[in-house]
Write a protein that binds this DNA or RNA. Structure first.
Length: 594
DNA sequence: TGCGGCTATTG
DNA sequence: CACAATAGCCGCAG
């Protein structure tokens, strides 16, 4: 599948508009204005707003197309309408894959797809000064200089059907160009496959935002209350609570020393500790933990920190803001700016362990929790093609054979492997690192190559084709030592991005495979993605079925993902899957219903 | 009001 | 206390 672009008429390449055997249609939709669907053969369907759900649903059922759209905004609108397509192509997501970075607004995606300098993309304010530059060409959405016209520039989305049809046609044009670019990417034969799974992941994000994570609100309130007391009735009440909690710590000091001490100010905490004879370079919890027995105020302080954290970040205000009708909802992103992991707001990705009992299946349902075991070292074996490391992945615990080969304990082997992937050069794993170099030279060479390239400020690409941009610019006035430390940091970042990024691609391939199969079988819905862990909310009666589906989906996704790698290898990936009532029940799973 | 530093949580 | 993320509060510069 190479990009033989035929003779072009006008400007665009005329490559066949298909991914595999997919039928491709572009869609532009606006809830108030309707939708335009444009097929690859140029035919189109215009849909009035009141018939959106009906007709879009009908196209999905009868044509089963791959839907092309500009960004996750379209996915959100469709999900909102109750339309959940099986397959899609998200121009914004593919743009980020091909070109890196975070910004993927239509004006930018369009410009870059046509080889225009993104720095010349006009901004709204500038365009206003040059109204003479209003579109005059064949397509009123495209300016004479090749950039998208004013209607696109500030998120403005024209809502009449003619404009929507133009948006869809232009989307199809960008799709063809992106598809070509992916086919031509050197040494990344899997890039087109990454593009479709990254697109589906973006759609999954829209669904996660819509569906939310099931929360037992009473339990959540109970847990928050156990840290910070009952809900304050008034603002004054709340201030009093905060004061009381502060005094609980400060009463350990003589009265005259309590004033002017702010527990929220690290410098004040240092001087507080100095008063009781404790000198510390910083006041982080792990450091204070070791001094717990030195003075009673240390334990009080740690307890205060815990409560303060719940009160400020995961307290009643957090519940009120993010939990609605029993679901915790946040904004999801399919790929962060660095290596391409999914991200989420509203605490979905950093919920403290104490709050996990509040994440619970609804009546008649269960949570199927599944996580990938040792995903990063397994991914390292796959992307580097290191035969010895690949054979270590046959073990359920791949650190065991590594430890055996190195002649060190499992713990040391683990620290060394993780250290190699993070770029650690000192500490306990440092000596074992030399052993790794001898035993797994191909894997270590892969990491070193990424490190060296990144130190030099050269951009990298993950095995799936994601561009990881590195800023190699020198800062004026930075001395040699500073510059060396910046280069080293870039090296660690680049080395890790190749692993974390590839792992994120595998994870998303798994997640969207699970999504597709759940959809077909009505066996539940994904409610959380957590880097290497999936949470599926499933009907109780399908619990064992759903658990099996999740495991089988990994094998299918991992096989497809490995076929993306030029030096195809056979790494074993493993899951740990359990059926639970509450997220916290991981240690005590439900027996599967017979 | 915006930003860097510090802190805490997660994978 | 390496790699990544979100998020709160504080002090300080503008």
């Amino acid at each position: 599948m190479s990009g033989s672009s035929g003779k072009g008429e006008g400007s665009g390449p005329t490559r066949l508009s298909q991914v595999g055997t997919d039928t491709v249609v572009a869609v532009a939709v606006d809830r108030a204005g309707g939708a335009a669907v444009v097929r690859a053969d140029g035919s189109d369907v215009l849909i009035e707003p009141q018939r959106l759900a009906l007709e879009l649903g009908e196209i999905e059922r009868t044509e089963h197309p791959r839907w092309v759209w500009w960004s996750i905004d379209t996915a959100r609108t469709l999900v909102d309408l109750g339309v959940r397509p099986a397959r899609c192509w998200d121009l914004g997501a593919v743009h980020r894959l091909l070109h890196g970075g975070w910004r993927a607004d239509p004006a930018r995606v369009w410009a870059v797809s046509r080889g225009l300098d993104p720095a010349t993309v006009p901004e709204r304010a500038r365009v206003d000064l040059f109204t003479a530059e209003e579109p005059t060409g064949d397509d009123p959405a495209v300016r004479p200089d090749g950039h998208l016209a004013i209607e696109w520039l500030d998120g403005g989305w024209a809502t009449d059907l003619d404009a929507l049809r133009r948006h869809a046609r232009l989307a199809l044009d960008v799709y063809r160009r992106q598809s070509d670019a992916l086919d031509r990417l050197p040494d990344r034969p899997g890039a087109p496959s990454t593009a479709t799974s990254e697109s589906a992941a973006e759609l999954l994000c829209a669904e996660l935002e819509h569906d939310g994570l099931p929360v037992d609100v009473d339990e959540a309130e109970r847990i928050v209350g156990s840290f910070v007391g009952p809900r304050p009735d008034t603002a004054e009440d709340e201030r009093q609570r905060i004061h009381d909690r502060d005094q609980q710590v400060l009463q350990n000091l003589p009265a005259h020393a309590r004033d002017d001490l702010d527990l929220r100010n690290p410098a004040d905490v240092k001087s507080l500790l100095r008063r009781v004879g404790i000198e510390v370079p910083d006041t982080r919890a792990w450091r204070l933990e070791q001094l717990r027995h030195e003075h009673p105020i240390v334990a009080e302080l740690l307890r205060w920190r815990r409560a303060e954290r719940i009160a400020t970040t995961f307290g009643y205000r957090w519940l009120d803001e993010h939990v609605d009708r029993g679901r915790l909802r946040g904004a999801w992103s399919g790929a962060d700016g660095a290596a391409g992991r999914m991200t989420a707001t509203a605490g979905l990705h950093n919920l403290p362990g104490e709050l996990r009992p509040a994440v619970a299946a609804e009546p008649g349902h269960v949570l199927v929790r599944s996580d990938l075991g040792q995903i990063e070292p397994r991914v390292l074996a796959a992307v580097s093609g290191d035969a010895a490391l690949v054979s270590a992945t046959r073990d359920d615990d791949m650190y065991a054979p590594v430890a055996g080969r190195l002649g060190v304990s499992r713990e040391i082997a683990k620290v060394a492997v993780l250290g190699a992937m993070y770029g650690q050069t000192t500490g306990r794993g440092a000596e074992a690192l030399r052993g790794l170099e001898r035993a797994y030279p191909t894997a270590m060479g892969f990491l070193t190559a990424a490190d060296v390239a990144a130190q030099g400020g050269r951009d990298l690409r993950t095995v799936g084709g994601r561009l990881v941009h590195l800023d190699g610019s020198r800062h004026d006035g930075a001395d040699d030592r500073t510059e060396r430390s910046r280069a080293a940091a870039r090296g660690r970042f680049g080395r890790n991005a190749m692993i974390q990024g590839a792992a994120a691609e595998l994870f998303k391939a798994w997640a969207v495979t699970v999504r597709a199969q759940l959809r077909e079988l009505g066996a539940g819905e994904i409610v959380l993605c957590l880097h290497d862990e999936l949470l599926v909310h499933a009907p109780e009666t399908r619990a064992d079925h759903t658990a099996a589906l999740v495991d089988e989906a990994l094998q299918a996704a991992a096989a497809r993902w490995q076929r993306r790698i030029a030096s195809a290898v056979d790494v074993r990936f493993v899951t740990d899957t359990a059926v639970l009532r509450r997220w916290s029940d991981a240690k005590d799973p439900l027996p599967l219903p017979r």
